[in-house]
């Protein structure tokens, strides 16, 4: 039951990231000038008929964020009450602290007119919250305790590298997004008709780094998935996320290309944001499963008193 609830919270967190993507994609971040109120109203009593224009995106994001925050409070409390493993309980506390910090960052970025460092931090913390919730969902699953006790160090390293690199790529994407560099290179797959930009500005360099980062992530994903399919084909708990990782990577690369080719159409752009987070957590699940024997060795499961 706890595991299912954690999966639900993870799905809600993905929805929240999509809603956040809509806010930036429609440039609606300041359409509600106050926080935590909304045009002076208590957030939950803001009239529905006033949710027009950019307010639809910004206020919806705030409402979904509040709901996710509440769900994470419940999740943390549930873990505190029912989870025998101390490190898993701590994951719940950490997720709670992270989502509170995320809420405060979201508020002050509005009050301070979207300063880039705060907005980028807000965008960078969101996938970490998602990672924490997905980790909780994973380690509370019945399947976590099953599976082969193999300890493939190559898989651990390449999977961990893929996850780390994907997060780095998300940070570059967030920086690109919040510095208005999303269309600094307007063509795809070439760069101003070439392989390397003919001129260099900070936005062009940022955008180009994101494209090179995509190639690096793709190479790592291929290496990880290839290793799993070659060496651990019979281990379903590794094979499934590896195949899924290939699929979501392909989807994400397509969305990235379409984001540029469509001139940052807001739905495509927002799907690109959330799909990046999905690539990250899929890679994370594979990584954690690759490291599972170490977790088990670190602290044996105890029965709650």
């Amino acid at each position: 039951m706890l595991h299912r609830f954690a999966v639900f919270v993870a799905a809600a967190t993905a929805l929240l990231i999509f809603a956040g993507g809509l806010v930036t994609s429609t440039d609606s971040g300041l359409s509600v000038p106050d926080w935590p109120t909304t045009y002076g109203w208590f957030m939950f009593t803001f009239p529905l008929d006033k949710m027009v224009g950019g307010i639809r995106f910004e206020h919806s994001h705030r409402l979904i964020a509040s709901a996710v925050g509440f769900l994470i409070v419940v999740l943390a409390a549930w873990l505190w009450r029912a989870e025998p493993r101390r490190w898993v309980r701590r994951l719940g506390y950490l997720a709670l602290a992270a989502v509170v910090t995320q809420g405060v960052l979201g508020g002050i970025t509005v009050l301070w007119f979207l300063p880039e460092p705060i907005s980028i931090a807000h965008a960078g913390l969101a996938p970490l919250v998602f990672c924490l919730i997905v980790t909780i969902a994973l380690v509370t699953s019945p399947g976590w305790t099953r599976g082969h006790p193999s300890d493939d160090r190559t898989l651990q390293r390449v999977a961990a590298a893929t996850t780390t690199l994907t997060y780095g790529q998300m940070l570059i994407g967030a920086t690109m997004r919040h510095t208005g560099a999303g269309l600094a290179i307007p063509d795809f797959p070439l760069v101003f008709g070439r392989l390397v930009p003919p001129v260099w500005t900070t936005p062009i360099a940022m955008h180009y780094a994101h494209r090179l980062g995509a190639l690096a992530v793709a190479a790592c994903v291929l290496a990880t998935a290839g290793h799993v399919l070659f060496h651990h084909r019979t281990r379903a708990e590794l094979r499934r996320p590896a195949v899924l990782l290939l699929f979501v990577l392909l989807l994400q690369l397509t969305l990235g290309a379409l984001t540029v080719l469509s001139g940052k159409q807001y739905l495509i752009n927002s799907l690109h944001v959330v799909m990046g987070a999905v690539v990250l957590v899929t890679s994370l699940v594979l990584t954690l499963r690759a490291y599972r024997p170490r977790f088990d060795a670190a602290e044996p499961v105890q029965v709650a008193a």
């Binding site: 509600v32 000038p33 045009y39 006033k50 007119f113």
Partner: peptide
């Protein structure tokens, strides 16, 4: 008959963003 936010984005003066609901 609808709400607006008034958002001034100056370079030298002070930025402000206020609601007129």
């Amino acid at each position: 008959p609808t709400l607006h936010n008034v958002h001034a984005v100056p370079a030298s003066n002070q930025e402000f963003n206020t609601g007129q609901p």
